[in-house]
């Protein structure tokens, strides 16, 4: 089991996985874009502006999911001190930051035609902005603190504190009166979105997840090479 999880084996599987994702990615992207931009119907109330949802919602989901996984992995790292975990969290963070920023920007582009404003200090939007700040803090610590142990400890604390913000983002639309609409897709209970829109949304989400996997694998591979380079210098 531990042999399977060695950096050498992980490196081998990263190569294989990257090739596989590359081989299917562009076909799936084309299909997803066709559904999102052409085949899916306009909304009865929001018209064609609803198509922004196909990039906005998956971006927000990925931003939230990435931070949640970083926080939980940081807790595991605090308890068990597994070296691999810090490589994983370091590789996930930039992806999460990018998608959080994309969710904010595309949300703003959706807000202008829908609410008549680019920005509002609304609970959902503000809590998403705070999430971006936590991401920036996490990444900056690794960039500016050269002492690795200290950087890991501080970044883990940032991630764990930031975890408090995740349920706030999720339930902000229920706890406060916000401009942002409540969730249409629920994990528990029935969703209020029609299947003709749900299908393209899930397809776009899947394609963006594949993209995340691709970036994550490349970043993880870079981190492994950095470690091996350091080891080589010790020779």
């Amino acid at each position: 089991m531990f042999k399977l999880l060695s950096l050498g084996n992980i490196f081998y599987w990263i190569e294989k996985l990257t090739k596989f994702i590359n081989s299917i990615f562009f076909v799936l992207l084309l299909v997803a874009l066709s559904f999102a931009l052409i085949l899916s119907p306009p909304d009865y109330l929001q018209g064609d502006s609803v198509r922004i949802m196909y990039v906005h919602v998956p971006s927000a989901w990925i931003g939230l999911a990435s931070f949640t996984s970083i926080a939980f992995l940081s807790i595991v790292n605090f308890v068990f001190k597994i070296k691999n975990i810090k490589l994983i969290t370091k590789s996930i963070a930039p992806i999460g930051l990018m998608f959080t920023c994309l969710a904010i920007v595309t949300g703003s582009l959706w807000g202008q035609p829908t609410w008549g404003t680019w920005w509002a200090w609304d609970a959902r939007i503000t809590s998403m902005l705070i999430l971006a700040v936590f991401y920036i803090g996490f990444i900056s610590v690794h960039k500016f603190i050269s002492e690795e142990e200290r950087a890991n400890r501080i970044s883990s604390i940032i991630a764990i504190i930031g975890l408090i913000n995740v349920p706030i983002i999720k339930y902000s639309v229920e706890w406060w009166n916000t401009l942002h609409q409540p969730a249409s897709i629920k994990l528990i209970g029935s969703s209020t979105i029609h299947s003709s829109m749900l299908m393209p949304l899930m397809l776009m989400f899947f394609v963006l997840l594949l993209y995340c996997a691709l970036i994550f694998l490349m970043k993880y591979k870079t981190e492994i090479i950095k470690i091996k380079k350091k080891n080589l210098k010790r020779l």
Binding site: L37, S49, V55, H56, S59, V105, Q112
Partner: peptide, 20 residues
């Protein structure tokens, strides 16, 4: 034109894919 929403819709997709 997307019934007048083209600027917002296309900008969203363009920004997303340029960033990616």
């Amino acid at each position: 034109s997307m019934n007048g929403y083209g600027l917002f819709v296309w900008s969203s997709f363009l920004i997303t894919f340029l960033a990616c």
